[in-house]
Computed example of a mutant assay.
Amino acid sequence: MLKKTIVVMLILMLAGCSSGLSDKHESTEKNSRKEAAKEAKNFLLIGVDSRGEKDSRSDAIMLARYEPSGEAIKLVSLMRDSYVKIPDYDKTYSKLNHAYYIGGADLLKETIEQNFEIKIDHTAVIDFNGFVEVLDTLAPDGLEVEVTEAMIDDMNLNLASGKQKLHGEELLAYVRFRHDDQSDFGRVDRQREVLELIKNEMKSSLTSVEGIAKSPELIKKVMNDIDTDLQVDEVLALATAFILNPVTEVESMRIPVENSFTDKMSNHAGAVLQLDFAENISALKEFFQGEESIEVNG
């Protein structure tokens, strides 16, 4: 659903901040953060199913790994129905997206760290309104995707099936669509597709003279729609690393990996995915190439 929001957020944080801002009186803390930005970082990117309401669930959950010395961003889609242990939750286990509902980004981050043995450095959150604004800002002419008859009926589009250009609200419906035999798994695939398209849009925009000139205004507008714990100097340091070592590839995977889960019913959570955690933790570590695990409590 909002997973493409994910890539938008990451690419914005990494590529979009070449605004020329500077601080003549940088503190030691800021210098330390800039040095840290040169290291590999794991981001938790969250798309929430709300339009500003207080209570919401994470509709899209993705981990992104960026290594300033590398040429690829690695994206991992975490299925929201994964049955996980939530810290200090009275029923102990529930769907992964329930962690956000009861404890926001902090609890979701802690839940992922403990269940999948991975350290998360930063988080970023965007809701439906923000997603639509971001897409219309980054791709004002729309993005071309494959639209099926089922999508047209579900989204009430006045279009023919096949390749069509969709815009903000339509793209939101496109990535959230799940009324076919692929269900949530199909949504994950479409989220990856839109992320790749957004990456290409950003690359095209920021490598042109006109795009570079407009980038400060563009980034400022987009960042207004994103809630992140990154400081401005951290964003700029990451942007510098990105410019010096441009990302040319987006690698992706899904958790749970194939044949590593079973469909189950929970009395309190409903239909869930029961994961083989050992297999999925191993796959995640391998994908992130040597990512150090953290100690899992409990």
Rank of each mutant, 00 (worst) to 15 (best):
G103S: 12
L45D: 05
E113H: 08
K285F: 00
E26Q: 15
I212D: 08
Y83C: 03
A237Y: 04
K91G: 00
L12I: 09
K163N: 11
S22C: 05
I46W: 05
G142I: 01
K41S: 14
S50F: 01
K221N: 10
A36H: 07
N259T: 01
G290T: 06
V257Q: 12
E170K: 07
V8Q: 14
K119A: 11
N245F: 08
S69C: 07
I281S: 04
M151Q: 15
T28P: 00
Y101I: 03
T228Y: 07
A237H: 06
I112K: 04
I152P: 02
T137L: 15
T262S: 10
G47D: 09
D225Q: 14
K264N: 05
L12H: 08
I198V: 14
H122V: 03
P87F: 13
D153I: 02
E210M: 13
F43G: 12
K264H: 10
D227C: 01
K85V: 01
F287W: 02
A139G: 05
N267F: 05
Y66I: 03
K30H: 01
Y66E: 07
L21E: 13
Y89W: 11
E234A: 10
E196K: 15
R176S: 02
G47E: 10
L96H: 14
A37Q: 03
F177G: 04
R57Y: 03
I86M: 12
M202F: 11
V222P: 00
L206V: 04
A15V: 11
G20T: 09
E35W: 04
V48H: 06
T248I: 12
G298D: 08
A271K: 14
I102C: 05
N129P: 00
N297P: 00
V188Y: 04
S94P: 00
Q164C: 10
L244M: 13
L107E: 08
G162T: 09
D55N: 14
E193K: 15
L218D: 09
Y101T: 11
G47I: 06
G130F: 04
M223N: 12
V48R: 11
S94L: 05
M9D: 14
